[in-house]
Design a protein around this nucleic acid. Structure first.
Lengths: 265, 265
DNA sequence: TGCTAAATCTCGAAC
DNA sequence: GTTCGAGGTTTAGCA
């Protein structure tokens, strides 16, 4: 914040650019270059790109990407951890990014540099992607039939001793149903979590039948047999489908309203 | 080339930035912004990113991507064809990218703009990627002996019910040969794919012997036993060697001509 | 570190 | 426009 954290040079000579670029990379700053270049790649595959104007980005983590004026993904790139070499060669400036394992090399040879920007990006922001588990809950609450016909949801995030049951309901035959929801492929731990809740509920309601259903887009290998041995079930449900269902749903699912209903029980 | 094809403003006011950014987008130029921002995304999933300094790129094709100081892939993005809205809001500048189908919105709200660059990138370069699966096909077609002596290729990309057989041929003893080609280490899925094709062909030609060969630079652990149990074979072939073979080959392999031959069968 | 599975995958081609 | 399959996939989660 205090010191100047960026510099920017226009139409530099290759000598100037060499100094600034090398310095920017060494000091682990973000480097952005617009210029005319050719690109060669050799590694798992090989590629060439003849001359044209592109945007080149070198990040502090040692990754590089070369962008053409179209498409989201770069035409060439190198993942974090590269070793860079900057050299003036044959009336041009060569930026070489070397990946050690697997051995891969990307060469960017500039014949013209329009602009070169080096800057320090301070980014302590928190990123959160909340695609799903909540959306999956909402979708099931709004349309319990996506789990099975006749299912009725009684409450959600219901507290029991080991934690919180995602969804709690009754099936068409009046049996208690405990739903454990995962937004990704469920592993063994998810099954054990569900088993704990089921056992807890069974111990409190010894004369009722209690079903436990693991709801997820898929299950890891071996999980099906574990489920079977514990008398639990699996219902495949795609988080994306839940989003779609919610988007199509005319009004938003009102969890607050639902909470009141659930408090009755 | 003739007219100045870029402009660059440092630490602009939101009003200035609004004008330049909107103009740059409308004129379909490449726009690069370094600044402090928060980002919200709603669509197939949802995400939030709290304040921090990032690099934002808007391309002439109507795509946008937001880069943090690490990782090759952007933290948020929107594919080509977006509709953009630029507005000054609450002491900030909001850049909104809307995708119509599926409905998705990315909002970038800047509280500080360090630098804003608009430029026209002229890029008519040709990109070519070598040592692809196609190259392996071509090399095998040109020199079937690299698989085994006496092999004759009958057709390629032949359609059968589950999909397309990479290469289809006859061995020295007149048996049908199905080749599944992978340019990388082949895993279980490649074997199952090959098995499907072999079974399909066997069911159509119940009185012919049918061999299935997986062609790849290597196979994952455990794949050999799966191959054996299914009565399939593995032939090691390096994609790079295929490139070399093709490069040494005097003329290019004429697939069109080959297609005519394959139509006979 | 190496492998397996998911991704707002991206991207291109076929239908 | 939608679906299907491949990718220098990339990325995340485990063994």
């Amino acid at each position: 914040m205090g010191e100047s954290s960026f510099n920017c040079i226009h139409m530099p000579s290759f000598g100037e650019a060499e100094v600034v670029l090398r310095d920017g990379i060494e000091r682990r700053r973000m480097v952005v270059i617009v210029g005319s270049c050719v690109i060669n790649y050799h590694g798992r595959a090989s590629s060439t790109l003849t001359r044209g104007e592109r945007l080149v980005i070198v990040k502090p983590d040692g990754s590089i990407q070369i962008h053409r004026p179209w498409d989201v993904s770069p035409v060439n790139w190198q993942p974090p951890g590269c070793i860079f070499h900057v050299d003036v060669v044959d009336d041009g400036l060569r930026l070489r990014a070397v990946r050690i394992k697997p051995r891969e090399v990307v060469d960017v040879i500039f014949d013209k540099i329009t602009i070169l920007v080096c800057c320090t990006l301070v980014d302590e922001g928190d990123f959160s992607l909340y695609a799903s588990e909540l959306d999956m809950q909402k979708a099931i609450i709004a349309y319990p039939n996506i789990i099975e016909d006749g299912l009725k949801i009684i409450s959600f995030e219901r507290h029991v001793d080991p934690g919180f049951i995602d969804l709690y309901g009754l099936d068409s035959k009046g049996r208690l149903v405990i739903l454990e929801i995962k937004r990704r492929v469920a592993d063994k731990s998810a099954v054990l979590q569900l088993a704990k809740y089921v056992n807890e509920v069974k111990s409190r309601s010894p004369y009722r039948e209690v079903r436990g259903i693991l709801v997820a887009p898929g299950i890891s290998k071996g999980v099906q047999s574990l489920l079977s041995s514990l008398g639990l079930e699996f219902k495949r449900l795609d988080p994306k489908r839940c989003s779609e269902i919610l988007n199509k749903s005319s009004g938003s699912v009102d969890l607050k309203k639902f909470i009141q209903g659930s408090h009755r029980s």
